[in-house]
Design a protein around this nucleic acid. Structure first.
Lengths: 275, 275
DNA sequence: AAGTAATTTTCACTTAGTGAAAACACCCCT
DNA sequence: AGGGGTGTTTTCACTAAGTGAAAATTACTT
């Protein structure tokens, strides 16, 4: 309400601008100084000084060949540090490895952020071959993935409805839920059953089971999933053993996080981000 | 030479300070605002505003429980973007997967930065069990690892010598090279043979073969390695097949990067960072 | 070698970041 | 409960530090 787009009166403008540059470069397109200046609308002296400073810290690096800027090595190191400081990940990992080895399929750990799924960890199944190697840090729509649906199911329903009422639910496959009311009803079902299935709502040939992780406050802070190709996992709802096992592992992790009440219906909760 | 510790006259101070905070938090210790202020020496109003801004961008996040700050989700997403924009990684990955599947051992891709090794990619071998899941983004000393030695071997010898002359070569195991002259001679050998071995110089029970990746300018931009436990890989110098295969894969990747001259002794080169 | 585009430097202006200190919120302890 | 202590948020006056325009330089192109 103060400046133009300041989401807070304490924002430091230069810092915002620096992050704008990082965000711009996050699409993987390397850019020249002038391109950056024009695309964001800073004077090129400003962009220059921002880029020099960012480059000093290796947050961006400059291709010595064509002079274009792209994200720098420090980004990787920050992610490493982020991971190392995460209790959730440290506690979940050994269990996820077991789950991966038992099933041979790909196992994910993810959280909800701004109504989207972000992968924290991916363990590539031994059965799975040739897929992308690591999607850690990637964002996915929540309304059409197993992980997303289980996380949405335990989020604040009003916020969920409001959020999805305001945007198109893109139809990725014939199975995709594209109506907000349908989604909300589906999430009710998911919450009651305690797990979510993906029958190819995002990618037609993918099936997946997802289960929630609770913390000591009985809030859902993350979700895990086992996913694989339809060729091995269809129909997914028939594989009661896999569903049970996924839920078990989720409960083990929850317990290790201090969750003490495997009661029937824990209260709504946030993913930890938007409290 | 100008201000106090400004490595450039174009540095923007606030930005430097913001990065200082991120660096501080990179040890994984969550900290309270006052702790951060005291440790870095900013007034707490300054730290406050920096942290608020960083938090707005999810570069740090605040534990709603104890109010401590730690690195935020955006760090992960930046790393994802960094990866996606890396030609090297995209080109190398399929070859590394082959190498991993053939050997069953753990395969790494790494670069040299500030005379240290930074992992860009780690593919966990199927034989390997229970080790850490992902050390991507981690730093390792270069002088006592296979990846490090091959990268140092093709770096500027003077810079290498100067760097290591100024610091202790810590003895991790009885095999660790702790003398700078020994190191330099060893690097000569490595350069001549075209690959590096680790016979437990960093971790006693680890063996490893590493080979260099050349780009279109015949500069060494990265290295790959295959590593495993001494129980399977000792003595490593006897496993000529593994060495050959590692070199082959490295050459394949180099070729795909545009390297055209498998001549005997390519010129010295940087890892891309310190040119 | 001239011409054009991109980057780097300078410079005067004043915005916008700064630290001190005050106001406020939150525990913990008796 | 109350109250002292710790930690966070807000205010405020000051001027250092970031800003854009434009010039100087360098790097590409033809």
């Amino acid at each position: 309400m103060r400046g133009h787009r300041n989401s807070g009166q304490y924002n430091i403008r230069v810092l915002d601008r620096a992050v704008q540059i990082l965000t711009l470069l996050s699409d993987g397109q390397p850019r020249t100084l002038t391109e950056i200046s024009e695309e964001i609308g800073f004077s090129n002296s400003t962009s220059f000084r921002l880029l020099v400073t960012l480059a000093n810290h290796h947050l961006v690096e400059r291709d010595p060949k064509d002079g274009r800027y792209r994200l720098g090595l420090r980004c990787l190191e920050l992610a490493r540090a982020y991971h190392d400081s995460s209790d959730l990940r440290r506690i979940a990992l050994p269990e996820l490895e077991k789950l991966r080895d038992e099933t041979g399929e790909t196992v994910h750990l993810a959280i909800l952020d701004e109504m989207e799924v972000v992968y924290l960890e991916k363990l590539h199944g031994h059965h799975a071959i040739g897929l992308m190697s690591s999607r850690v840090g990637a964002r996915l729509p929540a309304y059409c993935t197993g992980l997303g649906k289980i996380l949405l199911a335990y989020a604040n329903p009003e916020e969920v409805r409001d959020y999805f009422a305001q945007r198109e639910l893109h139809r990725f496959t014939p199975e995709t839920i594209t109506d907000v009311s349908d989604l909300m009803h589906h999430l009710d079902q998911v919450r009651i059953s305690g797990y979510a299935l993906d029958r190819g709502e995002h990618e037609a040939e993918v099936r997946c089971v997802a289960a929630p992780i609770f913390d000591a406050d009985s809030k859902v802070v993350a979700a895990i999933s086992v996913s694989g190709p339809a060729s091995r996992m269809d129909p997914i709802e028939a594989d009661q053993a896999l569903i049970e096992r996924t839920l078990q592992v989720a409960q083990t992790i929850s317990a290790k996080l201090g969750y003490r009440h495997p009661v029937s219906r824990p209260p709504f909760s946030q993913g930890g981000k938007n409290a």
